[in-house]
Every structure is written in C-alpha cells, then in structure tokens.
Write a protein that binds this DNA or RNA. Structure first.
Length: 889
DNA sequence: CAGTGAGCGAGCTTCCGCTTGACTT
C-alpha cells in the first residue's frame, strides 16, 4: 500500500515527509505544470493552421476552449510524477488551497489520468496535527474554482495578446500591455504628469528658540491676529498659490523678517497647555507585500532581491512561506511569539490577549500563513548564525512577528501655546509613557517627517502664565514640493491595495515594466519613459476601462461568483471579448481609428515641441514655418526621461542641432577642428569632420565629472590622444596604457605569456582621485600590483578549511556562495550534496566529489557555454538594450 | 556604439501566476 502525495514546492514536500508514514511518497509539481502555449513553437501540430491558436492559444470561435501544453521546462517534472504514480495505489493532491492551487490539481488529474483513487487534501499549517486532520478531511477537486482560474488565465491572455500587437502597430515593436502591468505603468505616468504640472509655492514662517528655567524648547508660529499661518497644505498644486477658500496668512521673506524684528524683544507668555494620551498598536505580521515594502525602505533591498533572500530563508527552514497575502498566524506561532516577548522583554510587554490579525484586502486568497520565523519556537536572529542580507531580513521578520504580540505603546502628546503680541507660537512634545512594541519594532516610512514622529520630544514642565525667554527667532522659507515619485515600495503598496497582481508577481511586475523600457530606476524612484507616456495615453483614450485601477477588482468579483457557482465562465468571457463593447470589436474599431503618427506623439504640459517615439528612441520634432521644408528632428539622449525635459532642455538640444556642435579649437599638430558634441550616450569630443575619406573620426566620451563647459582645448586634445602609452612593465616588457572604457578610466598591462601567442590584458580601474590624462607610470604599476577587486561580497573567507588536496597540496575549502555552500579546489567548485553538512564533510569525501565534478565537466561543456552567454547578457543589460536600438536600423 | 525616424514585408515580439531549476562562486 503506497500513496503519492503531490504538493507545489519541494521544500514543503521535504517538511511534510516528516509527518506522514513512510509508505507515503511526496513529490513537488513546482507550480503549474501546464499552460497556454506561450508562442508559435509550442502549438500542437493539430492546431498549427488555426488563426485563433496562433493569436491566443484559445479557441475564441468556440467557447474559449484553451489549448494546454506542458512547457519544455516542465516536461521532466511531469515525467517524474508519472513514474511516481505507477508505484502508487492512491493519489493525494495537496496543492495550495487557492484558485491557482486548485487549478494545478485539476491539471495534474488531466495529465496523469490516474487509475487509482484520488483525493484532494488541503492544509494551512505544517504541523503533525494539521496534516493528520487534513488527511481525514479530503474532498474532490472543486471544478468551479478551477473554472475561475481558467477564466482569469484566458482573460489575461486575451487582454495581453490583443493590446500588445496593437501597440506594435501603432507605437513600437516589442511593447506590451496587460491587465496588471499597464495599470502599474499608468500609475507612474499619472504621478509624473502631476509632477510636471506642479506649481511650487513659497511661504515663510518663524521658529523660536525659547527657554524656561534653563530648559530650551522650540516653538513655531501658527497664528497671526487669530488667523492661521499658511503651510504647504494650503497651497493649490496647480497654481502655486493659496487654494481658494483658505482663510490663512501668507508671509513673504520681508514680512517674516519684519515680524521677527518686532517680536523678538517682546514678552512671551504661555497661554495654553494640553496633554493628550494616545496609543499605538503593533503592526500585523508580514505578508509578501509588506515585507517587500519594509525591506525596500529599511534595508534598501529591491523587491526581487527580497524575494530571493526570503526564498533562501524558507528553503533552509528559517521562515514560513514567503509568497502570501495573509496576516493569519497559527496558534503555535502566536504562542512562540508570546514566549519570545516574555523571555526577552518581560511579562509587562506582552499584549494582554493573544492577537490574531485579519486580512483587509478583499482579493486575498489566504492559502498560507503570514511570513514569520518557522517552527514552534522562534530562533532569535543571533541564534541563527545567519549573515548579511539573510540575517537582516530574518531579523526584520523576527522583530515584526514578535512585536505583533506585544502591548500597545502608550504616548502622551503635549501642545503648548505661547503668545507674543498678536502672534501665537506652538510647541509640540511627545512623551513615551510605555514603549510597548516599540521596543522591538518601529515601522519604516515613506515619509521621513512621519518617521520622526516616533521619536520622543520632551518639553520643559511649562504652565500657563510662564514667561519663557526668547533666545533666538529665525525666519524660515519653505517651498511646496511636488508629489513624490513611486518607489518599488510604494508601487507594491498601491498595487496590493487595489488588488492588482499577486504575491508571486509584485517583484516581476516591476521587472517587466523596466525591461520593456517603460520606466527606469533612479536611486529608489521609478521614473516613467516617453514610451510609457505614449502607451498610457493610447490606452487611456481607447481602452479606459482596462487601465482603470478598478478593472481587476471587478474581474475578481466575477471570478468569485464563478467560484461559488453563481456565474458561468463562458458567458462572462463571451461578453468581455465578443460583446458589443467587447475587446475584440473594440480593438478592430480602434485599430482603424488610431492614427499612427498621433499615437507616437507625446504631448507634455508646458512644452510646445512635439515629442515622438521613433525607431531609435524618442526625438523632438519642431515644425518648420516654411511648409515646404522638412521639420527639424532632434534625438533625445538616452536616460533623459519626460521628467527631465523642460523648455530650456529642448532649446539647448535644438540649438545644438541647428548651429552645429561647439568647436573647442584646432588640434595643435594636425590643425583639424575638435568638436564638443552631445550624443545619445552623453557628451563626447570628436577630432575632424566626418567625410567620405574619414568616415569614422576619432571620438571620445567625457569622463565622469568633466562637464561640457569645462572642456578646454587641452583636455580635448588629451582625451583624443588616448590610449596613452605610459611605459613598459619592468617584469614582462609589456605595454602599460591608460584609456577610457565603457566603465570609465582604466590602466591596462598587455603582455605575452611564455609560449602563448595571444596577448594577455590585465585591467584595473582608476580610482576617483586619479586622472586618466595625467596618471603616472608609477601609479599605474601600483594599481596593477593591487589584487583585482573581487566582485560581489565578502566571499573570501572560507566557512571551513578541509586541508590540502593529496594531488597538488592546494587547499580544499568550503565557501558560502549565492547558490549555496560549495567546496573549492583551485578552479573546480562543487556544491555540497544534499544530506551532507558543512561540518560533517571530510577531506576524502570532498576530494571524491571534486574528481567527479572534474570528470563531468568535459561532457557538459556545451551546456556551460550557452549558460555563460546567458550570464554575460544579463550583466550588460543596459548595454544590450541600447545596442539593440542602434542595430535595428 | 555616435546623427537615423521609411521601405522590399519572413517571422517575430506579447499576457499573469504558480514554482524552482539551469547557471556558478
């Protein structure tokens, strides 16, 4: 008697193995095992000639019947499951209890066609009791829920595969649109429009430094003649003036200074004092979304990296599952958190009752627990022995989980009014009466001003009638600020709030919009591109419903009805796609309506010139007054986004195009002219004109830190004389040169190794203090003598030294790598096999593993070669996209 | 890499979710 149990994740398989009898075999499906064909080569031959198959992989002519295929990457998994099933006389489908999980089970049934009894089992916690109970409560696959998933899948396919081709035709090839990404892009564009339209306003106020009984405190002017003083929120962002209907006093610099002079020597009297007790409740434990936000804000880690690190922690058994939308904690988890609080902070810091949090988001499917330290007792961050990011992330998760079972923080807010003449100043303080969960956790904030709130601000014990001394009075000017750009954190937060996207996709959505050229990351901000503006405008104008934040939640409502059996999926899709206002009809109509030129043209507020999306990127088009002549076209440098483009920028770009490049001077030796030019990759100098005889005049980029206005003839000549020969290496007689490369200035040592014909090159980057034009021979030797900076982190120190290899006496060590711990000997690396530990492995075992690896290396040469290609591609993503653009012409 | 924005018209690009492999250090 044996039972095959299929779960989604291999880690889960490993853990539940401990709670099931040995006659149970546990396998993982690794997520979905079938999907719609992603491209033409995946379409089965039977459907190859069908239009609908090629366009959608869904039969839109016949009740949206989908073609499901096993993707190449999943063939192995499916085979393994089939083999495992042959040995079993019972099948238990234990995929997650949400829409996608139910669907995976259904697909498994379709694929495996089991002849043995089948049960569907669901569990939310991986404990012996929970799994035993789940085994008792098996059910059948819920077909309605499966239909809801299919509807979601098909709808996304229809939206994506109709709108994207429309964009190829109307705007640029390779673009994409989708239910999730297009809304995300639109959010960025809308915010950028607000920022462009924003009119800043100035206002002044006074800050006083007062002193009572030798204790200083600060107070700010709040009213004048009983009228409220204007602050940033009183301004209308569209005009930069005080918003209509606001009865406030606006001070300019002169008025503020005059007021200051008038008030400084007067008598200041405390007129009012108020105290207000408040509470702060701890935050709920982490979901994927809140973890990504906090890791981004507090640790500066991107959503993608957060997930990568969390996955590691999960696989190594440190935390529970990291893709979840639930804040629910198991009773064991609550008990563990409470025991942590008692031990580390004491009974008084414990919340009086165990706290269970409930998920607010309507779209939540709650197939998993909140993200928390794994197990029935939590290891403290120190006990884990983790390091670097893994430690920091675990620490964050541990603190948040423990804090959620702690007592509320109790604060007292104190406000004191101080009158002087016709003005009232206010001083605000905050006293923490009991820190409660603050002891463990203070949430990071998008708004640094708000983060400061958590700090204690103490005031001297003032009472009404006190007359503090005014030590200093300062007039301070302020400028209202435009709304902040989205960061990864705030975008994820908004998407989750609107129910758009799922825990498993937040990080990839951001990746997609960057990959497609819809946005770029500038420090932490997501800045939309010109393409994003063009695409968003088109979609807003012609498909407003689809790019509305409400679209997904409407869809979700219908999916819920389908899941409950109260709605049918085919009529819904029919209406959505084939209906009078359906997508198919709309796309057809709009395709004729949309003018290609107009779609590629971007209108920006307060910019007259037209911006157009060309094949090689965005350019400015200035119409000529003379109708006969062609309009003027000026390329916009890459990395310049709509955010940077103001009328002055355009002016300067147009001017350069019209008047030609600035001439720096004539080359002292050849007499050729030297130009300073603006290229798509920045400013550069060029020697001579481009002619038929000289099709490739010498050009050199300005190094970082050199501004175009600083370029003298001397600098230009110097740059154009690069590479500069510094001398010959004393050891090898090889040439040492200095030059500018793609990654900045460098020195290189060129030499030939004994017997080798090929020239070897040893590169070192110059440091910030070095100048490529003047760097000396000695300095170059010094740099070359330094070891190459190892890429990545502190992977230098071995975790464990095993000893020296019997063959060559070279050390055999164990290191920590991004792909797990591994054994290193010379250039051969081999991962530690499953079941072995860093501590347990012997030198003999390691030597055997290394020999095995060295033997297989020859046979897998082909595989590593293709893989190498992949990584280099990845490394040079930025370059790739730009060269791609340049080479399509 | 470096001044374009179109066209002979093959075949291609593209969606959202669920998972960990491939890679190597």
């Amino acid at each position: 008697m044996s039972t095959l149990v299929i779960v989604e994740s291999p880690t889960k398989a490993r853990t539940i193995r401990n709670y099931l009898p040995s006659s149970y075999q546990i396998e993982a499906s690794m997520g979905h095992v079938r999907d719609l064909p992603s491209s033409a080569d995946e379409i089965p031959t039977a459907y190859k000639d069908k239009r609908w198959a090629k366009d959608f992989g869904v039969n839109v002519e016949n009740d949206f019947e989908p073609i499901y295929v096993v993707p190449k990457t999943k063939k192995k998994v499916v085979q393994k499951l089939k083999d495992a099933l042959k040995e079993a006389d019972e099948l238990i489908l234990a995929t997650d209890e949400d829409r996608e999980g139910e669907s995976i089970s259904w697909h498994l049934l379709q694929l495996l066609k089991p002849k043995v009894p089948v049960k569907r089992m669901v569990f939310h916690e991986i404990t012996r009791e929970a799994i035993q109970k789940a085994l008792q409560d098996c059910r059948a696959v819920d077909e309605d829920l499966v239909h809801a998933q299919e509807t979601r899948r098909i709808l996304d396919r229809l939206v994506g595969y109709t709108l994207s081709p429309l964009l190829w035709k109307k705007i640029a090839r390779g673009l994409s649109a989708g239910r999730v990404q297009s809304v995300a892009v639109r959010l960025l564009v809308e915010r950028e429009r607000e920022r462009r339209a924003f009119q800043s306003g100035d206002y002044w106020d006074l800050k006083a430094l007062l002193e009572q009984d030798k204790s200083p405190f600060e107070a700010k002017l709040i009213t004048l003649d009983g009228k409220k003083l204007a602050t940033g929120s009183d301004f209308d962002p569209d005009t930069g003036k005080i918003a209509e209907g606001r009865d406030v006093v606006l001070l300019n610099e002169t008025q503020a200074n005059a007021l200051k002079e008038r008030l400084i020597d007067q008598t200041w009297t405390v007129s009012n004092r108020e105290e207000r007790a408040t509470k702060r409740r701890p935050y709920p434990p982490f979901t994927t979304s809140t973890l990504q936000q906090e890791a981004n804000r507090k640790l500066g880690i991107s959503a993608r990296d957060t997930m990568r690190v969390a996955q590691k922690l999960y696989e190594q058994g440190y935390i529970t599952y990291m893709r979840t939308d639930s804040v629910h904690l198991s009773t064991e988890a609550i008990a563990a958190a409470r025991s942590c609080v008692e031990q580390m902070y004491g009974q008084e810091y414990l919340s009086p009752k165990p706290k269970q949090y409930s998920t607010k988001s309507k779209s939540a499917q709650e197939a998993h627990e909140a993200i928390r330290p794994a197990g029935n007792t939590f290891r403290t961050p120190k006990e884990t022995g983790l390091a670097d990011r893994e430690f920091k992330l675990y620490d964050l998760i541990w603190k948040r989980t423990v804090a959620c079972q702690m007592a509320d923080a109790r604060l007292t807010q104190i406000t004191v009014n101080v009158d002087v003449e016709n003005a009232v100043f206010r001083s605000s303080g905050q006293r923490i009466d009991f820190p409660g969960f603050f002891r463990a956790y203070v949430e990071g904030s998008d708004d640094p001003e708000a983060a400061l709130e958590n700090r204690e601000v103490l005031l001297p014990p003032l009472k009404v009638g006190d007359t503090p001394d005014c030590k200093e009075l300062e007039a301070i000017g302020h400028e209202t600020q435009p709304p902040a750009r989205y960061t990864e954190a705030s975008l994820v937060k908004t998407l989750e709030k609107e129910g758009i996207g799922r825990p498993s996709t937040y990080a990839t959505v951001i990746g997609t919009i960057i990959d497609r050229g819809y946005a770029q990351m500038r420090s932490k901000a997501l800045v939309p591109s010109f393409t994003a503006f063009a695409v968003t405008s088109l979609l807003e104008e012609h498909f407003p419903d689809l790019v509305n934040t409400g679209f997904t939640s409407q869809m979700e409502q219908t999916l819920d009805e389908i899941a409950r059996g109260s709605a049918h999926w085919i009529p819904y899709l029919k209406e959505f796609f084939k209906g009078e206002k359906g997508l198919e009809t709309q796309v057809k109509v709009r395709e004729e309506q949309i003018d290609t030129i107009a779609a590629k043209t971007i209108r920006l507020d307060n910019v007259d010139a037209k911006i157009r999306i060309g094949r090689y990127g965005p350019f400015i088009e200035v119409d000529n007054d003379n109708e006969e002549e062609e309009s003027l076209k000026v390329a916009i440098p890459v990395n310049l986004t709509p955010a940077d483009l103001d009328p002055e920028q355009i002016q300067s770009l147009v001017k350069q195009k019209l008047e030609g490049p600035d001439k720096v001077g004539l080359h002292p030796e050849t007499g050729e002219p030297i130009y300073l030019k603006k290229g798509p990759y920045g400013d550069y100098v060029q020697l001579g004109d481009k002619t038929d005889d000289n099709p490739k005049p010498k050009q050199k980029s300005l190094p970082k830190g050199v501004k175009p206005e600083d370029v003298t003839l001397e600098i230009a000549v110097g740059l154009l004389s690069l590479p500069r020969l510094l001398g010959l290496h004393p050891g090898t007689e090889g040439k040492i040169k200095a030059d500018l490369g793609r990654f900045g200035p460098y020195v290189v040592h060129e030499f030939k190794e004994e017997g080798e014909k090929k020239l070897q090159r040893d590169y070192r980057s110059l440091k910030a203090e070095d100048d490529v034009l003047t760097v000396s021979f000695d300095r170059a030797l010094e740099l070359l003598a330094q070891p190459k900076r190892t890429r990545g982190k502190s992977s230098k120190k071995p975790l464990r030294e095993l000893g020296s290899h019997p063959e060559d006496n070279e050390p055999v060590n164990i290191y920590k790598g991004p792909y797990g711990d591994y054994i290193k000997h010379g250039k051969v690396n081999v991962g530690i096999p499953e079941g072995e530990t860093v501590e347990g492995i012997t030198l003999e075992a390691a030597v055997a593993l290394l020999a095995e690896k060295a033997a297989t290396k020859k046979t897998t040469k082909k595989a590593t070669k293709t893989a190498k290609k992949k990584t280099t591609k990845k490394k040079t993503t930025t370059k790739k996209t730009t060269t791609k653009k340049a080479s399509t012409g």
